[in-house]
């Protein structure tokens, strides 16, 4: 049962990576920008969840607040930072994005302190349940359920609604989509709003799992998310999901077998380097977006 436990804890981490990385891959698919500042949106989601939950006494309200704050932040980043820079080479908005990440991380440090913040009350991280001999805490179960719901909803949205189909059409060919009345600017706002909301939820969930948020929370995740979207075949949501879960499980087993030599993040990057050496085009092979 020990190995099953490990796999499940790996999948839980993989879910977090997936929620975080999907926003990145969506932005890349649409604008060909590496949206590094996405990690700061993720950190914002974590902070808002913890602080609002503590102030209101309800973790649910914390998540709702994060779901409001992060899409607004993402849309503002697009409107104020990327849109004026879209006419330049793609490395220009990317550098601006890195600058914004550093700025926001330091902002969190100044506003909320170097030591970070924790939930005053977090029963989810303590209470556990046994399912068929596997022990999970409620936070892990929440992560699994929320991730499944979100990806199902995303799938239904992009295949069953007109605006969702228009979104995919714009990723595929913005100019032609515009010829049929799909407003690319609106679709971009939608793209940033949804991607950022997912990162916000991921931030809240990781705060729940670790019961801790500090100003550097975004850094490591941002590097990992970048590697994941490359692994998933840039722009592909499905590839990103597969790569995220794969990386989570690798990390989980790695910490047991070579954890005394390398820490969790080092194992993840070692795995990424090896995989990308073997398959530089990523898992899915082609750019699907």
């Amino acid at each position: 049962m020990f190995y099953v436990d490990l796999a499940i804890s790996g999948i839980v981490f993989g879910c977090m990576y997936a929620l975080m990385a999907v926003g990145l891959t969506l932005v890349y698919g649409m604008l060909r920008i590496l949206h590094i500042a996405h990690a700061a949106v993720f950190a914002l989601g974590a902070y808002v969840t913890v602080l609002v939950a503590n102030a209101s006494g309800s973790i649910l309200i914390g998540f709702i607040a994060a779901l409001i704050a992060t899409p607004l932040c993402g849309v503002a980043i697009y409107r104020l930072l990327y849109q004026p820079l879209l006419h330049y080479r793609p490395d220009v908005p990317m550098i601006a994005s890195i600058g914004l990440l550093v700025l926001m991380q330091d902002g969190f440090r100044i506003l909320f302190g170097e030591q970070g913040v924790t939930f005053l009350k977090n029963p989810l991280a303590i209470e556990t349940v046994d399912i068929a001999g596997i022990t999970l805490n409620l936070a892990q179960i929440a992560v699994l359920i929320v991730t499944i719901i979100i990806f199902l909803a995303l799938h239904l949205f992009t295949t069953q609604t007109r605006i969702g189909v228009a979104w995919r059409a714009t990723v595929s060919n913005p100019r032609i989509a515009a010829s049929f009345g799909v407003d690319a600017i609106r679709v971009r706002y939608l793209n940033f709003a949804i991607g950022s909301a997912l990162a916000g939820v991921a931030g809240g969930l990781i705060a729940l799992l670790n019961n801790f948020v500090d100003p550097t929370i975004g850094y490591v995740v941002s590097y990992k998310a970048l590697a994941i979207i490359v692994l998933g075949g840039l722009g592909s949501v499905r590839g990103t999901l597969i790569a995220s879960l794969f990386l989570g499980v690798i990390e989980s087993y790695g910490t047991i077998f070579i954890g005394s030599y390398l820490n969790r993040d080092a194992i993840a990057f070692l795995a990424l380097i090896l995989i990308l050496m073997a398959r530089p085009q990523g898992f899915t092979g082609a750019r699907t977006a």
Partner: peptide, 21 residues
């Protein structure tokens, strides 16, 4: 320049996007 990643039906949906569903 059809939308290669979309199905035939979905391509047609986008064609009619300016008008009521």
């Amino acid at each position: 320049q059809i939308f290669a990643d979309l199905s035939v039906d979905e391509n047609l949906t986008i064609g009619g996007y300016s008008f009521p569903a």
